[in-house]
Design a protein around this nucleic acid. Structure first.
Lengths: 196, 196
DNA sequence: TACTCTATTGAACACCTGTTCATTTAAAAT
DNA sequence: ATTTTAAATGAACAGGTGTTCAATAGAGTA
């Protein structure tokens, strides 16, 4: 069964109003009253759908993340799927973030809840797990999980750094760096050393 | 010149009131009015010192992070400084987080601003940069910055994972994991493959 | 001790929040 | 087309927010 048209209309109005307001002011300074005023929605109605302004933003973010998932599942990407090289697949993420640069500026903005960061993390982790399972012959279950988290976090670290320089580095450069880093770790003098 | 005693008294009252309230309710549900009521501070006075409840929490967090910095600079640690092994130095962080476990539960809570995550990130990053510069002969400036963030966030990821299992793993085990990850990368079949 | 600064106070203000409830409106079902 | 169902509305509520301002009080200074 499909959603009541009135619900769709209300949610759409609120989202459009939010995107309109975001052109001129930061997310954390937008309040429910002005959002409803612009959307021509009764404030009480707002609370039937969301708890706060972040709820509206989050539902939009979910669609953006769906777009990332779609890029990953794209036919082109699938046929060029290269189980020899995890890293080359990560460029999809860099291109995605670059495409929605203005949006990700908000996601990584220090005043916003870490929930958004976690959402992105989980989306990327899912891809990373998929890729890793296809690349490694065997790894004990627990170690596999940790390793996937480790790799995903490293990518997230690159995104944090990227955000802090206003996404000025190119996706191709980032991908190149990422490739270099894993090699770098191998050359590291430390890793065979005594632990503690 | 030293700070006016009245200022110290006000800030101290607010901090104590916050810690008291935190025993019974989550940070995001504490409002300024009740905080001031408990601290016996006029609400207007609050605004002379902070913008919101997070400001009070943040000033406390800064001291906790100073404690982490101190552990890192400790004489014992300095003399045992081992440029051969980045990882063994990271156990300091695990012990620190474990010591302030209740506190870090808040830092990683998804409703709180990512600012706290970044604060910890930057503290750890400073150590990581220090250690990395001592371990790697040469890496171009920009790439070095990304690499340090890459490594730092891998640590952060372990902390997030640790938080999600209520800090039940022991610091020593975590350190063991961290050690394993870098070895895992070496076994990887992919990393020599062609990059796009 | 008396004097000077300045932090704190209390009152007041317009505005926002989160919730309730009877009423209106419009979509879905028959 | 009519009925049924449920979403949206407007008004009202107690309480929180962020700010101003004159008055008070307490810390630093001479």
């Amino acid at each position: 069964m499909k959603t009541d048209l009135r619900i769709l209309k209300t949610q759409e109005s609120l989202r459009n109003a939010l995107l309109e307001l975001l052109k001129n002011k930061p997310l954390e300074s937008i309040n429910i009253t002005e959002l409803c005023r612009l959307a021509k929605i009764n404030r009480g109605t707002f609370y039937l759908h969301y708890q706060n302004v972040h709820g509206v933003f989050e539902s939009y973010f979910e669609e953006i993340i769906d777009d990332l998932r779609k890029s990953y599942e794209e036919p082109y990407h699938q046929t060029n799927f290269n189980i020899q090289n995890l890293k080359s697949d990560m460029i999809i993420i860099f291109h995605h973030v670059k495409r929605y640069e203005g949006f990700y500026h908000i996601i990584f903005d220090e005043t916003n809840p870490i929930r958004y960061y976690y959402k992105l993390f989980h989306a990327i982790r899912k891809m990373m797990k998929d890729l890793t399972m296809n690349s490694i012959d065997y790894l004990p279950e627990e170690q596999m999980e940790y390793f996937v988290s480790y790799q995903t976090n490293a990518i997230m670290g690159i995104l944090v750094e990227w955000h802090s320089n206003q996404f000025s580095t190119s996706p191709d450069e980032l991908n190149e760096y990422l490739y270099n880093f894993s090699n770098l770790l191998k050359w590291f003098p430390d890793q065979q050393g005594d632990v503690e």
